[in-house]
Amino acid sequence: MIRALGYFIEIIRGSLITARHFMANMFFHILKVLGIKTKRKGAVTIQYPEEKKELASRHRSLHRIMTREDGQPRCVVCMLCVTVCPSECIYVEAAEDPDPEIQKRPSQFVIDLNRCCFCGFCVEACPEDAIRMDTGKVEIAQYDRQDLIYDLDKLKE
């Protein structure tokens, strides 16, 4: 009986907690409707397409290929990114560069974002700092799989 009473008290306390949440949040919602600015908000929701959360500085977003001053990609096709990529989504092909100091440059650099898991290993592995994932682009969805295969021109942008 006493135990049952204890439950009963807990039951009431439980609904008081939810009621308190409701009341407090409602209060701030009403203040907002009335146009009164408060530090606290009624909800933690971020209204996504209109509001956007600021990405962390280390956030890994869409890749980009860094270029030299003359606009050529920095990549020297060492294929370390290809080696380290756990989802095997990078394909690079080398070509001869006329400059003997550079020698090797990519004729193809393709990242298949269908497969990419955004682990950032390619960025870690790159000895030339040629690939970075700091574009801040996270909305990269496409209707067509083919559109998610990014080639050198697309990655240089």
Binding site: V77, C78, M79, V82, T83, A94, A95, E96, K104
Partner: peptide, 9 residues
């Protein structure tokens, strides 16, 4: 073989 592939592949 020049620039064809890296040897560890």
């Amino acid at each position: 073989f020049r620039f064809q592939i890296r040897s560890w592949f």
